[in-house]
Amino acid sequence: MLSRLFVTCSQCHTTHFISFLKHSHYVCSKCGYHFRIDAPNRIKKLCDRGSFFELDQGLKSADPLNFPGYQQKIDDAMIATGINEAVITGVATINDIRTALAILEPRFIMASMGSVVGEKITRLVEYATDHMLPAVMIISSGGARMQEGIFSLMQMAKTAAAIKRFHERQLLLVTVLADPTTGGVTASFAMLGDIIIGETKALIGFAGPRVIQQTIGQVLPPGFQTAEFLLEHGMLDMVVSRKNLKAILGSILRTHQQRPYAQGGERHAR
């Protein structure tokens, strides 16, 4: 029972009382390592209390390719997480600003993107487009979901297209890349944010480091594929510690509040 009170940081091996860790947003106070946290926890920490309204909660995955073991995997994930798929979408207020919100769930088959994830993201973006809302996405993912083959890959195009139409309405998309963000998700909606934020020391990439090393036959530089590395190489706009995430998102949303173009009308910035 006593062991349940403690968690050890996998980076610096400091022991933490769970209560303290929770209070510091699951960030190790010694080394800054960001523990992976689940989607419901993210919502609690990010959204104004009681403001989150979920959309498309009932969407569940089918098994279009009859991939062996896939249905079992989905059932297990649903039981383990208590949610239907690897993304939770909805509307909430962050420091009083109404925003469309998508949060990937790392515990659900590594938050990999299949048809349902792609569909929910697309529907959320369309909702935001229709209602003139900004959109914030908290992303971590293992990439496109292998078990749905080409259907998964297609989601990359689908989500990108929805975001294109969203952008045509001059609306703001902020994507927050958490540890780890990889594969087809990186190669699609994750990198389409107007503002792309990386969480401290998050691993963000497309292909895995081993594959890259074997392919190019070179040793990879230190810090390769970390958020800080990406920032240095111009792939991100900022690296933010989870402790400051809500405040910074609130600030970005507040700054970009505007009444978007009406037909031939004037844009008012606040």
């Binding site: 006593l2 009170l5 209560s19 303290f20």
Partner: peptide
Amino acid sequence: PLFAEACRA
């Protein structure tokens, strides 16, 4: 309060 609770635990 977390510290006080930790002492208790």
